[in-house]
């Protein structure tokens, strides 16, 4: 359990000066800029934590040891990295003036938390929200017609502001929790959100599939293909990856579609649109 840093302070983040939090936050937006294959986000994490260190009186030996603690391998989901940073700043703050945080303690906290957050973040953001938002954008672009650009702009604004606010709060929550961040990780809402995002992705993919099939139905007579063949082709292609149990990168999907297009054109003798 982390001892409260400033007993009686009004806010749990009172020990973290606003300017330091702001600097850490701004820097955390480019956490991955120096991503490398050996230590991944190590330099990024150190870059984010330096504003806190710079507010201390200069001590080359202490600075050197601080950098050694965080120059090691580090990798987590960038949207949740604020929890790690906030937590580490809390631990550093508590041991400030007492020789600094022991290297092993920093390593254990950082690595275990980073691993758990990487898994959660990948599930929630990369596999859940990111495809859901991408598909929602496609639905809006198709449904809104001429107002599609305004709709997409509004969606972009919502997503960007939402995640910037999330990241700001993550630093504060990580700092306030300290070692108690484990309780936060066990919150059932994470898993409910992951499930909800994945269901939303599937519904939106279904909406687009339905729109595709309807458009294929309407479009078919112009290409010289019967409507049923058009539906069968589009529907068949949508279940093809499931049947083949293969995952291709999007670029290879386009190349495969080009080959399919040529084959279909010559097989069905279509006239084009």
């Amino acid at each position: 359990m982390s001892a409260p840093f400033q007993p009686g302070a009004g806010s749990p983040t009172a020990g973290l000066p606003r300017w330091v939090r702001w600097s850490v936050y701004v820097r955390s937006l480019v956490l991955q800029a120096s991503w490398n294959h050996q230590r991944m986000q190590n330099l990024g994490l150190l870059f984010c934590l330096l504003p806190w260190l710079r507010r201390r009186t200069r001590d080359a030996e202490r600075d050197r040891l601080f950098c050694r603690r965080y120059f090691e391998f580090f990798n987590t989901n960038p949207y949740l990295a604020g929890y790690v940073m906030g937590g580490l700043l809390r631990l550093e703050q508590e041991r400030d003036g007492a020789g600094g945080l022991p290297r092993g303690q920093a390593q254990t906290f950082r690595d275990s938390l980073a691993r758990a957050l990487a898994s959660l973040g990948d599930q929630l953001f990369w596999l859940g929200l990111r495809p859901a938002v991408a598909l929602l954008g496609c639905v809006l672009a198709l449904a809104a017609g001429g107002a599609g650009i305004v709709a997409l702009g509004s969606l972009a604004l919502l997503v960007i502001v939402g995640q910037l606010v999330w990241r700001w709060q993550a630093i504060g929550r990580g700092y306030a929790a300290g070692y108690d961040i484990v309780n936060l990780l066990g919150d059932a809402r994470w898993h409910r959100a992951i499930g909800g995002a994945k269901r939303a992705t599937l519904v939106l993919a279904g909406v687009l599939a339905g729109w595709f099939l309807k458009a294929g139905w309407d479009h078919a007579p112009r290409t010289g293909v019967t409507t049923w063949i058009s539906l069968l082709v589009l529907g068949g292609i949508m279940v093809l990856p499931t049947l083949l149990r293969r995952r291709w990168a999007g670029e290879f999907i386009i190349l495969a579609a080009a080959v399919l297009g040529v084959v279909l054109t010559f097989a069905l003798g279509t006239k084009g649109s």
Partner: peptide, 25 residues
Amino acid sequence: GLSPALSWLPWLAGALGLGAVFERY
């Protein structure tokens, strides 16, 4: 003669992309 195949391409690529979403989840 390649024009119809290219007209098909965005539809086929989109359908395959949606298929990839269904496969993943």
